[in-house]
């Protein structure tokens, strides 16, 4: 008992939160993987995974076990350090943003007063992973993927920031908790529809999802930056991608869709998490549907779209917001 009392309660809270979040990460990846395959199946008029467990519900777990059990192949002539570091680099930074996201009024590991900035920063670290992985693989296809990832994220981080800034201007804070609290009466999606749309589109690009999945574009680059990865390395990228999607969707929920707000529930300060997850997974469902509907855009078109449409629109939006708020 003595040892525990030495530790500050804050630290214990953080440790517990990290453990919960990491286990949630894996759960999320499994759920998302399953949902993606099931939805893809039904979109294409086929049942999707059906064999392992009832309606294939255990399929992803079995796949995960298979991937973990595989040998981690390191091809000849790769940069061994970078090659091994890349999957970890894609996995680690995606844990941190979850620490500052307010799942409900009282369920938040830590309320940073610069929470939003923190999330955006961590989002950019993820690109490093793709670059390192692509560079370290010593494969031309991986290299293409890495280069595309970098250019793409530079182009898309700007509209993301600008659209988020519009919300920040309206509630004068970077703290996610306060932003949600400010949406007590009306969600920002109704006040800032343009910013919301821009954020969702740019978010698709940020998470490398179809139609912006250029870094892995399999019909062009076989598998892009993770061409050479197998086993655990691949699955870390995979988990990282899904968590990234989750983060993008939660930021959209927090900033635009009113976070934990919803019809009243008992123990609202905790059970608000139900509404939060409902909104997040609705957004994720939309992202999955988009992936299985559209072709992939070309690289220069993607950049054109970012610079010609998203950036001007978000700038104008920001300007109008600023003028209206300060009047």
């Amino acid at each position: 008992m003595e040892t525990i009392s030495i530790l500050p309660p804050e630290l214990i809270r953080m440790v517990i939160a990290v453990i919960i979040i990491i286990s949630f990460l894996f759960l999320n990846a499994i759920m998302m993987g399953y949902a993606e395959r099931k939805i893809a199946g039904h979109v294409q008029r086929r049942p999707g995974p059906m064999e392992v467990g009832s309606h294939g519900i255990l399929q992803m777990i079995v796949d995960g076990v298979k991937l973990v059990g595989k040998e981690l192949l390191i091809p000849f002539n790769v940069d061994r350090t970078l090659f091994r570091v890349a999957p970890l680099l894609s996995f680690t930074p995606v844990i941190l943003p979850l620490l500052v996201i307010p799942f409900s009024e009282k369920l938040q590991a830590r309320d940073l007063n610069l929470g939003l900035i923190f999330i955006v920063t961590m989002g950019s670290v993820n690109v490093m992973a793709l670059l390192v992985g692509g560079w370290g693989s010593n494969n031309k296809y991986s290299m293409f993927g890495a280069m595309r990832a970098v250019a793409q994220s530079i182009a898309y981080e700007i509209p993301i920031l600008l659209s988020l800034l519009a919300v920040v201007l309206m509630c004068n804070t970077f703290s996610l908790k306060e932003i949600v609290a400010a949406q007590q009466n009306i969600w920002f999606v109704f006040l800032q529809p343009v910013a919301f749309l821009i954020y969702v589109v740019a978010g698709l690009a940020e998470t490398n999802r179809n139609p912006f999945d250029l870094p892995e574009a399999e019909s062009e680059l076989t598998a892009g930056f993770h061409t050479e990865y197998s086993g655990m390395g691949f699955s870390l990228f995979f988990i990282g991608e899904y968590t990234n999607m989750f983060i993008v969707a939660s930021v959209a929920t927090v900033l635009f869709l009113g976070g934990w707000h919803g019809p009243h529930l008992p123990y609202g300060e905790y059970l608000g998490v139900v509404w939060f997850f409902l909104k997040v997974y609705l957004l994720l469902f939309l992202m999955i549907m988009v992936r299985w509907t559209y072709p992939r855009v070309r690289f220069d078109q993607l950049l054109n779209f970012a610079w010609k449409y998203l950036v001007p629109f978000s700038l104008v939006n920001l300007l109008i917001t600023a003028v209206l708020v300060k009047l």
Binding site: R46, M289, W292, T293, Y294
Partner: peptide
Amino acid sequence: EGLGVTMKALFSPIVT
């Protein structure tokens, strides 16, 4: 419109 097509397919019976 494209999204409408896939949405509709999502809720149609499977053919396989």
